[in-house]
Design a protein around this nucleic acid. Structure first.
Lengths: 159, 159
DNA sequence: ATAACTGCAAATCATTTGCAGATCT
DNA sequence: AGATCTGCAAATGATTTGCAGTTAT
């Protein structure tokens, strides 16, 4: 939906606070790299992968190794600050998510473009699932793959 | 939904027919391995990975290499006969899909159990997306991750 | 006949890990 | 001080690919 979730100084501080609480609560240390990577992640408006993240950081003259990025990205995930996607081939994609939850994705397979949308019916379905199966849904990942109108694939129906 | 899609001899023949048409249409050859792997895939009622597939085949004394499985599995996918999933870590999971389309998944993260469900609202959403973005949605992948009711994670709301 | 296939082994790609030296608390 | 980091380089795991011999059309 390209409704840009602008990260103000104030919001960034909330994020950092959440993360530092998480670090404390789990016996992790607060390091410069850790905070720098987190801040960089929240400066992305789009999805990104570890390589892009690495490039952005180098461009700003932070010298952070890929190992460190990979190691820390798991923490942000655990802390509920980023979401990991595996759209298709290649590297995983990530996105910040603290102020941007409950949205879903449309991937245009021809161009690689990723759109976001929200739909209240998804919430309804989630509620229905929780009730019907007596479970707590704590994560969902919904992707629609498509492309700009023209031809279409053969799709046999349910029998 | 555990509504088992039993594959009768008749259905299997339809599948094989579809696949052979696909092979012809694309200049691929019909080999014993290719047909054996396909048949084995359609004997699974659940999701499977390439290793399980390999084991099943060996147990039946088909000696097929992993390379061949990997190479061919792409064809079944292209032919619209299987779906590939990347639930979490590790290997990709696959499932037959010719007689079992338009269903979605609930993954119980504690037990690893996978449930299937259908919901007409998903179709509505798909239609809405196609109209709104002027695209053709040709694939969708919807997963809800949850676990049997008890505690729940802290989930900050949209701002 | 010949283009496509199988299977092995080697290659690749993304991600993880072991370890030595540096850094937080 | 002592546990936890970082970063390098080496290890891993899943999947792909090159190639020589084999098979389908």
């Amino acid at each position: 939906m390209d409704e840009i979730t602008e990260i103000t100084e104030h919001k960034l501080n909330i994020i950092k606070g959440v993360f530092m609480d998480f670090l404390n609560a789990n016996g992790h240390k607060r390091t410069t790299e850790r905070m720098a990577i987190l801040e960089e992640i929240y400066s992305f408006d789009e999805h990104f992968d570890v390589l892009e993240l690495h490039h952005h950081l180098r461009r700003k003259n932070y010298k952070v190794s890929m190992a460190t990025i990979y190691n820390n990205i798991k923490l942000y995930e655990e802390a509920g600050l980023i979401l990991k996607h595996r759209f298709g081939k290649g590297m995983a994609q990530y996105e910040k998510c603290y102020f941007n939850r409950d949205h879903h994705h449309i991937i245009l397979t021809d161009t690689g473009e990723v759109k976001e949308f929200r739909d209240p019916r998804i919430q309804d379905i989630k509620n229905w699932i929780e009730k019907t199966y007596d479970i707590k849904v704590d994560r969902q990942s919904l992707y629609f793959y498509g492309r700009r109108c023209e031809k279409q694939k053969n799709t046999p129906r349910d029998e």
